[in-house]
Design a protein around this nucleic acid. Structure first.
Lengths: 245, 245
DNA sequence: ACTAACCCTTGATCTACCTCAAGAGCTAGA
DNA sequence: TCTAGCTCTTGAGGTAGATCAAGGGTTAGT
């Protein structure tokens, strides 16, 4: 009981059991800042497929992803679409310092968000050097990821692109997995159409290349979404890794 | 005269005439910080084509671009190359917070750099919230640019890609140019091979598409590098602009 | 269990861009 | 002015991936 009293003294009750309190922006606020912050946040739940406040919507605030996967996409007038990023738990949704950003955020799975008004986050960032630091590190990482993807989009063949996205998901799930860097198991967070939009290919080409990898024993696919990679190094070779990575 | 005395009191002599003092990181340091900072910086000059400390080189420090254009590229093992970014005057060279970054920086024109040791910039960033803020804004902008480029690489046709890069340069030079958003004149900072590496195309395709735009009167090209765009809107339409941009 | 609505796969054909090849500007140095 | 070395252009033909088309799996609701 004492322990509960102690924590509720310093941590807002709605944050105590939050799964991303230690990894998202909240980890970089002082207890006082967190208490003030939490008075203006509100959790919301969303179904897969829902559009989460297109980032052009200036009235909307920011949101932290508490659970689920979100895709960021851009459109050309004629409907061609490019996936430009994925957001996972603890990532921040919304473009800081800019009210116009031609990006759409859409739920790929069921989503739990922690929403906050623009002004609240912006003043927290203005006050907290630690928070700014965290956001700077995150955005530099996102920039690295985006540039790595530019190599994939600009210079890799279709077989290499598909291997690259599988490798991306495999590496993301490696730690969750049991042991060595030999075998990895995971569920694809994206359907073929989204993978195609990520890779700059068509659905058919993605499907054909997955079939090829399956025939060659590089991956084992069950029920379209569940994937086993018996040998990560083999997949990595198929992805035509960049020279210094 | 009074004004000159006042500035030399507070600004290090080597910085007084620096062309990027008002726009680069130095604009966000206090006079005292700038004085301390300047004691550890050194200018260096480089020829076009020179490789400027591959960013994997952990011993190297950071550098600010004072003059010229630099291309950031990534390589695949077999030599395929992708241009992932361009750096202009006042941009910072070097990946903050990470010693390994598989990116190569190469001078595209004659270059003037202001070099500094890693530790000096890092402690300045740690101390200065204004500097961190500046770097955060810049990296968010670079992220936006990279994602815009992902759309070009993943979903645009060759004619649209070439129009897109011309539009990019045209918009960058618009303010330098005289007046309205009608006619713009500029020199291409990149040769065809670099444009191809930026666009994920071959040299021949870039050349053919430039010829096509020339034949159609969208651009006027003299001596391979000098370009006139009589009607920006027309070029923009050729670039297949993204929906909300 | 059955049905509807998605997903995904596979095949046949087409085409945008690549590859290979030749030659024509430019630029710079002797 | 001439030459050497880039850089750029243009043409002919080949190919990776797109498009068009059909059918098979998977999942969820009744």
């Amino acid at each position: 009981m004492l322990e509960v009293i102690a924590t509720t003294d310093t941590i807002p009750h709605q944050c105590v059991s939050c799964s991303v309190r230690q990894t998202g922006i909240c980890a970089h606020l002082t207890p006082e800042q967190l208490i003030a912050f939490a008075q203006h946040t509100r959790h919301s739940h969303h179904q897969a497929g829902e559009t989460l406040a297109s980032e052009t919507d200036t009235s909307a605030g920011y949101a932290m992803v508490v659970e689920g996967v979100i895709k960021l996409t851009r459109l050309l007038q004629d409907g061609r679409q490019q996936l430009v990023g994925l957001q996972f738990a603890s990532d921040l949704l919304g473009r800081l310092y800019s009210s116009e950003n031609p990006t759409t955020a859409e739920a790929v799975s069921e989503i739990e968000l922690c929403r906050m008004p623009k002004s609240i986050l912006e003043s927290a960032v203005a006050e907290s050097s630690a928070l700014k630091d965290f956001l700077l590190r995150r955005s530099l990482q996102e920039l690295d990821d985006a540039r790595e993807w530019m190599v994939t989009l600009g210079r890799k063949t279709a077989p290499e692109r598909v291997a690259s996205i599988l490798l991306l998901f495999a590496l993301r799930n490696r730690r969750a997995d049991a042991g060595k860097d030999s075998a990895v198991t995971f569920d694809l967070p994206l359907i073929r159409a989204d993978m195609a939009d990520f890779l700059g290919l068509t659905i058919e080409t993605v499907s054909r290349q997955i079939s090829k990898l399956r025939e060659d024993g590089v991956i084992i696919v069950t029920s379209h979404r569940h994937v086993v990679v018996p040998d990560l190094e083999r997949l990595r070779r198929r992805a035509g890794q960049s020279e210094l990575a």
